[in-house]
Amino acid sequence: MQENEANNEFYDTTLNYFRVKLPTELSQPKIAIICGSGLGGLVDTIDETNCNKVEFEYKDIPGFVTSTVQGHAGKLVFGLLGENQTPIVCMVGRFHFYEGHSLKQVTLPVRIFKLLGVKVLIVTNASGALNKDFRVGNVAVLTDHVSLPGLAGNNPLFGPNHDEFGPRFLPMTEPYDFDLRVLAFKAASSLNFDKGVLKEAIYCFVGGPSYETKAEARFLSTIGDIVGMSTVPEVIVARHSGMRVLGLSLVTNMVVLGKGRSADPSGDSGIIEEQPPNHEEVLEVSRSRADDMQKLVKAIIELI
């Protein structure tokens, strides 16, 4: 059996799992949302009247792997959101390359979203600020990205192309939809967000799970505004599948850029050491801004 035929059967198995279990009104979601670190509370706002909310644990879904990272619940939630009762699917917690999953496993949910009929993918994550114009609590609206793993050969489209989804050589000149970005700023204005909370940004994707060295951070600051360990593989596969993509990143920490202390007696001994990042800090900021992020995503969906 050819690899593409095997993959098609694999996708069909997962797709049929949902088709059997989902009620008709939830079986063709229009929008998919990937909830990043600490940002899964959006599913709590889904309309639960008339049982219009269905949850699946990742461990029970054929082909899905499990999320092992704190702050990622590990479930897929289908429901109706907002006044327009938009059918959506929420990925509460994502899969990461650094957990040991292949990029095909990391991006499998996006392929399934496409087969279910999803047209728009909203990806959220937590990130560190490389650009000193950014502050903790900013929401970055992604305009572009730099995939360090991708440039080194770790691309989710590596291997035989799935012609049924998209072309062999995918142009990535516009990964994040301009019109959706406009809607993000309109939504923020309608919610009376403080001016400057939303800022457009270039996202640097690194493999993780270790945070960047100071030298790596200074290098990254020359090519992007924020840095994180996710999102880009899902975006590439979504674009390959013809979906429109909006990327939102909550800035949870300032990346350490300074050179630090010098052991050379003739060097500068007055340099102040910056606080290194930690995952608890990421989760704490995510929790503190969760309500704003939920309101923003809901307002955007109402405008789509």
Rank of each mutant, 00 (worst) to 15 (best):
P156A: 03
P156L: 04
F158I: 13
F158K: 13
D163N: 14
F165M: 08
F169R: 00
F169A: 04
M172S: 11
D177F: 01
D177Q: 06
F178S: 13
D179R: 14
D179L: 15
D179N: 15
L180H: 15
R181S: 14
V182S: 07
K186R: 09
K186C: 13
A187F: 01
A188Q: 01
N192M: 00
N192H: 00
F193G: 10
D194T: 13
K195T: 11
G196Q: 02
V197F: 03
L198S: 12
L198K: 07
L198R: 06
K199P: 05
E200R: 04
E200G: 10
I202K: 13
I202P: 10
Y203E: 15
C204R: 04
F205Q: 12
F205Y: 15
G207C: 11
G207S: 15
G207E: 14
G208A: 05
G208F: 06
Y211I: 07
S221P: 06
T222Y: 01
T222D: 00
I223W: 05
D225C: 03
I226S: 07
I226W: 03
G228E: 11
M229A: 08
M229Y: 08
S230V: 01
T231E: 05
T231G: 02
T231D: 05
E234Y: 04
V235T: 15
I236E: 12
V237R: 05
V237F: 02
A238M: 03
A238D: 09
R239T: 14
H240V: 06
R244N: 07
G247K: 03
L248N: 11
S249E: 08
S249L: 02
L250T: 12
V251R: 06
V255H: 02
G258W: 00
K259Y: 04
G260L: 04
S262I: 05
A263Q: 12
D264T: 10
S266D: 14
S266V: 11
S266W: 09
G267C: 03
